[in-house]
Design a binder for these strands. Structure first.
Lengths: 227, 227
DNA sequence: GAGTGGTCTAGACCACCAA
DNA sequence: TGGTGGTCTAGACCACTCC
């Protein structure tokens, strides 16, 4: 093995064997470049990667330390719902439950930084995998970002229209567990109060609020990833 | 603004304005380096970053394309429980509910790739924030990795002993929502069936199984991050 | 075969910040 | 104020893969 990956592996190995203990200072990039017989840029690439991963902590002048309490970073892939279902080999379909213009709940307006009294597009959509309920989408859209006339969300889901037509740059996402309310229970065909996995996301293009969405997943849903 | 970050910003801007549409090919690194008046390595750094983020798709010879269906990557920080609580300004404490040697459930053994009939250390711990139940930890430990005599997990939590003494390299993590079982309900002081946010994690050092743990969070827990 | 991204080099300048 | 990481350059070779 060669290249910066071999250096990353060697550094990780020295950390695991406690040759470089947690909290300890490791040699400078220059020293390591000399030891490994490579350019400093190559060492930099390896150490930068490990710092991103949370294994190392780097500061100018202070040097590079092994993280005392490593903060592992897990990465989750946020995909289009259709892809999520299709990649499991199931057929995808969706059904718009309701659609209209109304005032958003206080929480939604607050999350998007919009006045409470604004009128937003409210969409409730059921997504199905192999014809069975997969998740309920409760979405509030900022009408200011839509073209005139507004797209037909019964043909192309709002989810996909947005990724195709609004290249968003920022947002935040939250996961939680909540009991199914009456609407969710009816849509997913489960008893009210059933534990549901909830994804909530607010999306902005720059400072411009785009949409807020809440996804209520069917029971048994798992969000998985590797560390 | 200068440097590779300005190039990343410019590329992002061209994507958002549809100058470079989704699925479209963008100029080669060499061409962009010429246009921006910088070295190819600088362009490479910017494009590589965007590819990691899921905005671009890169292939040798084929060139660089704007991702047609962008797969956004959310990163979650996996911390030590004590830190999680302390960073919210609350005081941390924990209490071992039960401790012993027994045969793991089939699912735990399977996840770790261990035979079902092996004896593992089984620990149930309640973690508290400001003296109130915060989460229940249900952990199975591979005894093979423990020193003799075994550490006293009533003094230092298994969670922290592991990060301090076993530098693990791999693992997987899953999030779900489940109704509280009787033990969880009693520990967290909530009615059975309450929707709980569950984190399950399997940890390995190389191919060597270390531990499997299930964290049942108190109601209202949210896992949040920015995109 | 040829064009692209992936990586490496040797050198350089700079920003930061602990001593 | 000196040492460290952060970044950039100009050039080079290679691996991959589409044509």
């Amino acid at each position: 093995m060669q290249g910066w990956e071999s250096i990353r592996a060697e550094v990780l190995s020295r950390i695991q064997t406690r040759l470089w203990p947690p909290g300890g200072l490791i040699p400078s990039e220059e020293a390591l470049a000399l030891e490994f017989g490579c350019a400093r840029a190559t060492v930099n690439r390896a150490l930068r990667e490990l710092a991103l991963q949370g294994v190392l902590e780097r500061k100018r002048k202070a040097g590079t330390r092994v993280a005392a309490l490593p903060i592992r970073k897990a990465t989750l892939d946020i995909t289009v719902i259709r892809h999520d279902i299709a990649s499991r080999g199931q057929s995808y379909s969706f059904h718009v439950l309701s659609q209209g213009l109304s005032h958003p709940p206080l929480m939604v307006a607050a999350r998007l930084g919009l006045p409470e009294r604004i009128l937003m597009i409210h969409l409730q959509t059921l997504h199905l995998a192999d014809g069975k309920p997969y998740l309920v989408e409760d979405r509030w859209l900022n009408p200011a970002i839509l073209p005139d006339p507004s797209p037909d969300f019964t043909r192309q889901s709002a989810n996909e229209w947005l990724v195709a037509n609004v290249a968003y740059t920022t947002g935040d996402i939250a996961f939680s567990a909540e009991p199914a309310n009456l609407a969710e229970a009816a849509a997913l065909n489960v008893p009210p109060g059933t534990a549901l996995f909830i994804t909530e996301r607010a999306t902005f293009a720059g400072d411009h609020p785009i949409t807020w969405v809440r996804l209520s997943h069917r029971p048994g849903y798992r969000l998985q990833t590797v560390l």
